[in-house]
Design a protein around this nucleic acid. Structure first.
Lengths: 362, 362
DNA sequence: GTTAGCGACCCAAACGTTCGGGTAACGTTC
DNA sequence: GAACGTTACCCGAACGTTTGGGTCGCTAAC
């Protein structure tokens, strides 16, 4: 009974009750004013509308989809929704989708190619009109196949090949952070670089490295370690960096969660983030500002990324050509990189805290 | 064209190609062995199966739903997916749903009653078979209406009235934490209690308070402050508690994120969590263990809660009677409450770290 | 006074399944 | 050899929309 109890009121019921034909009712209710104007007199349209709301008529989407071959459904794949970055992107997707009368389906793929395949098939079996992938592998092998099958889709968060995507300008973000650390005088720095298949980590790292390169400093390979995009991964990567005899004076983790792991590892080693070693993250997740040591990071417009993703997809569904978009990142400086400037010694109690948008000293 | 490009192969195509009737093909493919056995000879069934896979036949769910009046769709409402607790519960929901060949729809309500209404209507308009609410208000007013409309649903994470729900045993969780802090000798404690409409905060607080009451200690009202379930909320609540002349010796936040906010506030005041003031959270989110000061907390089986939610709903959809379930919480002791025991002075560098399942000193 | 045009509708065929009924042929059984 | 069961299918009516075409009566124009 489809969960709506008694209310199985159909177009036909309305039509019968009004002595009209079902098609007339359909047009009156759904066609935009021009269509419904052609279908019935204004008075009749009004009668129809009134009865529809009175009886609480709800169109049956299955019937409509069957007829029109459009489901108004969008499938969304993400590595995991419990990654707040993806969750926030998805919130943007959902919000924008609702504005376009689209519903979204989301599934977790855990970044595993086999699961990506399975989930994609499941989602397509539901006859979605289009898809959004938040878990693109940079090589675009699988996504190329999907594209070849004629499925309209866009990528968010990560880019791949020349498939249409909405990403943060990760290269620029990495560069901003590189410049920030350079200004603070850090020469020997390290990167916790994320997974090698994700464009986010790749581009952020590249941007960061190139900022240093332009300052004439080459970051040696042993200072760049890959890691999962979570706290555990960040911690492990930091351990690896600290195992080295001379630790770097600053660590850039390409993701806030990894940065939190770095913070934890530092503390295990009796080091103070911000004073002993500068730490920066990426994304400006809500937690970054609230951490015991507020985290310098790059704000990426996650919500907006989701919204733009839907926008692009909608245009794709209309048959328009679309261009990939890159959204502007914004550097957010906090104590985790400026602690040393603020007079907090390594014993570090009661030290000043700059929590939002502090700009680097000139 | 529903995103599947060329592949619009239908039952009729299979039937025509095999010289069979479409109903025969339908039964062969979908009825369980007894049904399909009745419908066609084993050899024919085999022929049908083979052709179906060869042509990559995918049943059209809209047509099936239209006919059967079952959509195999479940609507899920959560306050916000960017709350990792709900995201993890949803992961459990999605996983279990997939095992039952159900698809799920999720929507954010931001814990706002008007949006709960709107989203519920949207979800119902999609003709879901049932719903899962993760955003129940304890008063169950709105949910009572939904129940009255005959929609099958279950609650997860929060309970309300006597509606079927799957929750953590929050009362017990609060109690475990109370007993833990009592054992550590804390007499003057405070609670960051969450939102007054959420059973989670209510029950956890109550369990905690009752543990103290049984030890003959009454926690005064000014030591119990409500707050949003996020870091910002926790920070504000902690500020309020610290503004009091004599701060408590321990703070229990009913949610890990609020606890992180508390941690931040403490640091702003030059206080060390775990040594100066003990801090505990609830949920054991993945971050809790990785924080610079690893957080004592109560593990709530979030993933399992989601899974059980689907399990209950499935039984409800079969018309069975169901009972609410409470899952076991588990105390996880970390440095944020035991720091003082571990010899870390208030200057606090290079101190020992107990990260997982440390049990309180006997 | 025919016809063209238009307003306000109606008609009917889809869309792809499912499922309660056939039915014809082929044994068995008494 | 009549009655009865099976086996292996077929038939057709739904399910609730959408949409390309009518049609009928009326006014306006030539």
């Amino acid at each position: 009974m489809c969960a709506n109890g008694t209310s199985a009121v159909t177009l036909r019921m309305l039509a019968d009750q009004l002595g009209l034909h079902v098609s007339t009712v359909s047009r009156a209710l759904h066609g935009t004013s021009d269509e419904s104007g052609r279908a019935a007199s204004p008075a009749t349209v009004e009668r129809i509308r009134r009865l529809a709301t009175e009886l609480d008529y709800r169109p049956n989407p299955h019937a409509a989809s069957l007829r029109t071959r459009r489901s108004n459904l969008i499938g969304v794949l993400v590595p995991r929704l419990s990654d707040i970055v993806l969750a926030m992107i998805y919130e943007g997707i959902e919000e924008a989708a609702a504005e376009h009368d689209l519903s979204t389906f989301v599934a977790n793929t855990r970044d595993l190619p086999e699961i990506q395949r399975i989930r994609t098939d499941m989602v397509l079996a539901r006859r979605v009109d289009g898809m959004i992938f938040g878990d693109a592998y940079v090589d675009a092998r699988f996504l190329g196949e999907v594209a070849a099958r004629g499925v309209p889709f866009v990528l968010v968060n990560r880019r791949a090949g020349d498939l249409p995507s909405v990403t943060c300008n990760d290269h620029l973000g990495g560069r901003l952070l590189g410049e920030h650390l350079l200004e603070l005088g850090h020469r020997d720095v390290a990167v916790v670089a994320g997974e090698p298949y994700a464009s986010t980590g790749i581009d952020r790292t590249e941007g960061f490295v190139s900022a240093y390169a332009e300052a004439g400093i080459e970051i040696p390979p042993r200072r760049i370690v890959r890691s999962p995009f979570d706290a555990t991964g960040g911690r492990a990567a930091a351990e690896q960096l600290l195992a080295d005899g001379r630790p770097p004076s600053a660590i850039f983790a390409v993701n806030d969660f990894a940065a939190i792991g770095v913070l934890g590892a530092l503390r295990d080693h009796g080091l103070h983030a911000g004073t002993d070693i500068a730490v920066a993250g990426f994304n400006d997740t809500p937690l970054a500002a609230e951490l015991p040591v507020p985290l310098t990071t790059v704000r990426s417009p996650m919500h907006e990324m989701g919204r733009r993703g839907i926008e692009l997809l909608v245009r794709l569904l209309r048959g328009e050509q679309v261009e990939s978009e890159q959204l502007r990142p914004e550097l957010v400086v906090r104590v985790s990189t400026t602690g040393a400037l603020l007079g907090g010694g390594s014993s570090g109690s009661k030290q000043g805290v700059a929590r939002t948008h502090l700009h680097p000293p000139a």
